[in-house]
Structure formats: C-alpha cells, structure tokens
Design a protein around this nucleic acid. Structure first.
Lengths: 195, 195, 195, 195
DNA sequence: GGATAACCGAGACGGTACGTCCGGTCTTACC
DNA sequence: GGTAAGACCGGACGTACCGTCTCGGTTATCC
C-alpha cells in the first residue's frame, strides 16, 4: 500500500511518531495538527501524508511503537489453572496502562477517533484489538476445557462482561479506575459466568 | 447565563437544532460545522454562538429536544419486585435507542466529544447522564431493600457491571448490539451480583 | 462582482496594496506570494482571495492606486499645435515613469503576467492601457485635423510606430532607455509618418 | 559547465526537449513544471537538473533545437541592394514565425521569463538574440555604405525603430500581427530613417 | 406611540490548518 | 558515472471553518 517502503527514512518515521505522542500529551489530540507534528519532527508535511492517511493513523502507529518498546510485551495471558486469579492480574495490568499518563491521552484520542474513521478502526482491530482479543478467547477456552467455565458459554459475551465494565468506566464514567475496581469486576463477572 | 432569553427566537432555535441533527445524520459529526448548521438553518453564525458555547452543546440540546418529543419519557425505572425482569425491560429499551439510526450517530458523536470537552461533559452529566444514573441507583437500592441484592453492595460498581458491557459493545466492539445480548448481560450480571 | 463591497475594510485594502508593492520592490514579483502579502499586511489570506482573483490583479490595483496618488494624473495629452513637440514631452514623461524605480519592477511584472492571464489582460486593457490609448488616438486625430498628419493614416499603426520602439527597449532590449532616445524615436517616427 | 557531456544520454535529452515544448503548447508555460516534463519524458528529475539550471533554460534549448530543425536557418539577411525590400522580406518571415502556433507560446514564455532571470537572459542574448542582432547591424551598415541610410545614423536606434513596433505588437498589443503590418512598419520606419 | 435596546440575518475579518503541488536536493539500484 | 525512480524538507497554493466583529433591519418593551 505505501509507495515504496524500502527507501523510507527510518529517522523521519521515528521523529514523526515521537512528535505525535509528545504533542498529544502536551496540548491534547484536538489541538495536535499534522502541520504541528511535521514542524516539531523537522519533516515536510508530505512525508506524513505519504505514509499515513490521517492523524489518527499516525497516533495508532505511535502507540504500537510505544508498546513494542516495553519489555513486558504480552505474548500470552497467564494460565496458572486459576482463571480468576489470572484475570485479576491481567486486569490490574490493564488498569495500570489505562491510567499511565503516557498512554492515557493518546489512547482516549484513538478510541474516539475510531468511532468516526472506519479505515482507522480496521487498522486498530487488526493490529491492536484483534490480537488482544484472541489472547483473551484462548485463555477463556482453556478455562472451559479445564471445567472452570461452562462449555456452552458464549466467549464473545464473556469477554464483554469481563472487560466491558472496565473500559466503560475508563471512557465514560467519572468514577475512578482503580486496581480494587478491577478485582471486583473480575470477581463479580466470574461469579456471574460460572453459573 | 444566556444574554436575554426572553427575546430569543424560538423559530431560529428549532431550525438550528433540526439542522444540526440532520447534518450529523447526513455527513457525520466531523464534517458538520457551525457554519454549515447556520447556513442550513438560515441563521447568522452569531445566533449560534450567542446561545451555545460549542458544536457539541448544540448537539446535546438537539438530542434532548429529540427525546423530549418522545412519548415514553422515562420518569422512573419499572419496579415490579422482580429486578432482573425489570432490568431486562430497561436494557432492551436502551439497546433499541442506541441502535435507532436517529439517535445512533449524534449520540456516538456526543459520547466522544465529551471526552475532550469538560464543559460539555458537565452539561451532559447534569442533564442526561446524571438523572438517568439516579434512577438506576434508586432502582438498585429498592432491590437492596427488598433483599434481592446484598445490602453491602457498592451501587456504583453494580451500575458499571450491568450497563458497562452494553455501552462497551455499543462504542468499542464490532459485535452486534441486540436484545438477546441485553438479556444475557443482565442475567449474567445479576447472577454475579447476587452472590 | 465582489461579494459585498459596502462592508469592505478600506484599512485592509490599503495595507494589501501597499504590502504588495513593497514586496515586489524588495524581493521581486516571482518571490512575492499571496501568503507573504497577507502576512505583511496583517491580513488573512481569505481577505485577499475574497477581493482579487490573483496576485497580478492585486498588483494592477496597487499600481493604479499608486498613479492615482500622483498629482500629475494625465487627463489629456498636451495639444499646442506642434505634434512632435507635444509627443516628445509625453514620451519623456513615459520614459521617466518606466525608469522610476517605484514603477519599474511592478510594471514589468504586470506586463509579463498579462501575457499568461487573459482575465488580467482584460482588466489591464480596460483600466490602464485602454484609457491611455484613447488619449493617444485623440491627439493623433487632432493632428490629422490640423493637417500635421495625412488624413488616411492608420491610427493604430501610428501608435505602434511611435510607442513601440520605446516599450520594446524597455522590456526586451538591454540598451538604456533615456530621454534622448525618446526624442529620437519621436522625431524619426514623425518623419516617417508625415510622408 | 555540464558534468560530463560525453556520457550524456541523447535519448533523454531529446525526450526532455520534446516534452517541454509539448507541455508548454498544451497547458501553457505557467502550468508546465519540471516534474511534469520529467514524468512525460520518462526521465528522472535529476537528469533535468543535471543539465539545465531552470525551466526556462530547457525551453530555450527546446526552441533552438526546433529552429535548427528548420531548413531555412538564417545565415545572413538578404542583401539585394534594396534595403526596404530586403527588410520587408525579413519582417514578413519574422511575423510568420511569431504567429506560428509551434513557436508562439514557447517564445512568449521565454520572452517573459527573460525579464526575471538574468542567467537565462544571458543565454538568450548569446545564443538567440545576439546573433540575430549582429545580422541586422551588418545589413544596416551595408546599407549605410551603399548610401541608403545616413552615415551618422545610430544603428541600435535604427534597429529598435524597425523591429520595435513589431515586437511590441506581438507581446503587448491586442491588434493583429500581419504581413501587411510588417510591410507598413518597414516602409514607415525606412522613410523616417532616411531623412 | 415613539424611543431604544436586544436579537436577528448576513457576512467581512484575522487566523489556523487542511491536503496538494512543486521546487531543488539526496539516495538507491541498475546498467 | 549517468540514469530512472522517487523520498526528502520546505514553501506556497487555494479552501474550509474558527470565533469575533460590524452592519442594517426587525421586534418587543418600557417610558
């Protein structure tokens, strides 16, 4: 899809992603402009338009680059045999990330941008949400196999029941998003699903 | 707060709210501009700026006007003594509204605008979300009093557990938002909370 | 043709014309941009685009405003009864203007822009060249009536013969444009035409 | 001045000159870009920048190549002993060339470009205008020697008097440039000069 | 019932950013 | 080492809207 990726300047790519994240953190997503990103990155606007279709796409890449830089890149959800304990661990990590100031602003921005830009949503699904969702499905199926969850349980429903309250509180509610809340959500959801 | 509401032209007010809703429906929120609303409403831009602080505020009013026009204006959540049945009823209505094409686009738009505009969020909380939330709390407390829910239950947590999955699926997931899903979420959440 | 001339800001109009002339004088026509004019004039770009169709049109107006400011606004060519003497006077004035540094750069620029922009050429003809040409025709016809020129002489040809060499040297030749040259051209052309 | 002319691709050179002429003819000089020429010629931009300093320089070469292709490459102005007749012949040929659609657009373009680009002007003088001017001077001096023109006549002045009206009408006037006009200009100018 | 003040439509204004085009330079791979 | 290809930084284009600011015209109170 990109013009000719082989000749692409890695230097400019990094500068653009860094500048985008910095600007979103400093002035917010709405006041972050492509022009501003280009200027701060010391890059021509065309270099951004050549490789990304929109401001949101730049931010998505920036966010992916950021999480790839982390050591704890999740390969698999923990599977100790105790689903509830494992999910609490995972959910606390999720809450920690969602409240990390480095991630919070750009991720909120992306989450809303996705609602208006189908192309961006497709990218997000393919590169961020999809892989994560597959890990969740895997872990839940493993729990089904182990008898921790009913065999006939609808996995997609289960995922929304477990993670939905957390994401809802993150984006839509004014109540605080804490580790305790994560634990309570997991406990309650697990209890509800086990029936 | 408004200059002098008594002299306000009701005709212009209606035309603005209608045009705003129409435009959001036709071209999407992002491509709806104040200038566009003014032009379609046959109104000077200043008339919009005089009475509303932002595009989102216009839309919030438009949405409120829309739901006030409905007959089924909710005064109280049903309370038949069977919490689960009552909630299923309520949740099905919510899902119906969220998937109604007249509401869907503007409500999604508003939901995201709120994330970036604190003043708008305050209005939203005060005039839409707050009243609803109070009804939910009331109904849940009534259930506590009736022994259907544990007395020590954190009501705010309960609300997020029950409604979170639905709103999460509405805004963030690609899975369909159906009446069945509403029922399942309520059933599962209730079972989890009753423990 | 303009949107609504009555509400036009005279202040901005003057600032734009002045800035345009200044910039053409300082950096040349090619490096003068609409953006640059707007910036120097302290004016939004749209204010230029609202009232002028092109950079050349701004310059034409600026030039017209400049010459309107002069006291010696020509109303009629002198007519003392001695055509050759009168024309020498006029031609020396023309040469003086063409070599005046305030006029030279913008007028050269305009003269070339006209070759590529038919709309601009029409304006130029109507507001600058045409009126002047009519004065010339008038004076020559008066000379015909007085018997100083043959009655059957083609006036358009005569004008090109008299003024052509001067404008040619101004724009195309590297030889200097002097008052003596003006005199010689008039003398020689008159002699050629009288035959 | 060019890097190493020996390795130069004749194929590319021709393609560039042809494309330049074609584009100027089709979309005009202003909308002809170096990128456009390169693209149409199937050539890298660098290949143009390596061998020519500017768009105008390409066009000058293209024009020279075009006239070299003509059979009637002027080596000398005709000298039959009748200056007026000779000049009429020459002037009619000039008019024919200036109104030839193949030459007209690019030559107008070049004539104006020269006003803004001193380097190009130097090239133009050296390779097109200068040689022609020398031929004209030669022919006029020959006429002086033959007694057809006064011995003390300023040759440069004479050239401007004879050719000025034609070039002026070509570039600046809206009146048509015809063979009759050429004849009349020569006749009148000759009469004026002979005095 | 005439003055007057607020609202209204219209739209010009100084700005910011858009997404595109092209200038001139540099880099890569090929021949 | 010249070439086709094209990425790069940068500057300007002409457009869309922003939010503010007059303009006249029209109500709708209040003296």
């Amino acid at each position: 899809m990109p013009p000719n990726a082989s000749r692409r300047s890695e230097r400019s790519r990094r500068a653009i992603l860094d500048s985008a994240l910095d600007l979103v953190g400093e002035v917010g997503y709405a006041r972050t402009s492509i022009e501003g990103i280009a200027a701060r990155a010391g890059v021509g606007k065309q270099t951004i338009y050549r490789w990304w279709p929109s401001k949101g796409a730049v931010l998505l890449d920036a966010l992916l680059a950021l999480s790839e830089g982390e050591e704890g890149e999740v390969e698999d959800l923990p599977d100790t045999g105790d689903l509830e304990a494992d999910l609490k661990l995972v959910m606390r990590a999720t809450v920690a990330e969602l409240t990390d100031p480095r991630y919070d602003a750009p991720m909120r921005a992306l989450a809303t941008e996705i609602l208006h830009d189908p192309a961006l949503r497709a990218q997000w699904s393919e590169r961020l949400d999809g892989p994560l969702r597959r890990l969740k499905e895997e872990r839940l199926r493993s729990a089904q196999a182990a008898g921790e969850l009913p065999g006939e349980l609808d996995i997609a429903l289960a995922i929304d029941l477990i993670w939905g309250p957390v994401f809802h509180r993150w984006l839509q509610s004014e109540a605080p998003l804490t580790a305790e809340f994560a634990d309570q959500v997991v406990a309650s959801a697990m209890h509800g699903l086990r029936g």
